[in-house]
């Protein structure tokens, strides 16, 4: 019992500690990066259970703001090799278990 309690506590700790967005790789300019990151956070929080809707929301918003051909991948485990336009890639983690990859390639 004690073990599981500890485990739960740890898990809670982990969730609390790891809830912040963590940019892993980006080459966006400062302004764009901040905006994209905030957008990703909003989308992931809004559709906490449905990654597809979150991705859709991010993609559509980015298209509107910065022009077309944005691609978004959200998931807990995926690999990727992408070709993207320079200054248009954001790869970040969020909420401890989600990875969001946003890039543009037309």
């Amino acid at each position: 019992m004690a073990d599981t309690g500890d485990g739960k506590k740890e898990e809670a700790d982990y969730k609390r500690l790891h809830s912040f967005p963590l940019i892993r790789h980006t080459d966006m300019p400062e302004e764009m990066r901040v905006e994209a990151m905030e957008l990703c956070v909003t989308a992931c929080e809004k559709y906490a259970t449905n990654n597809e809707s979150a991705a859709k929301m991010i993609k559509e918003t980015m298209d509107k703001k910065y022009g077309s051909s944005w691609h978004v991948v959200i998931g807990e485990g995926f690999g990727f090799e992408i070709t993207h336009e320079v200054k248009n890639l954001l790869y970040m983690f969020f909420g401890g278990s989600l990875a969001v990859c946003v890039w543009r390639c037309s």
Binding site: G75, E76, G77, H84
Partner: peptide, 25 residues
Amino acid sequence: TFNNTVRVGVPLGWWEIYDAYMEEL
């Protein structure tokens, strides 16, 4: 070559997310 494009490849699993967070912390 593509104009102004860069290829990025990263394999990803939840453990990597975890590691990244721990590093950051």
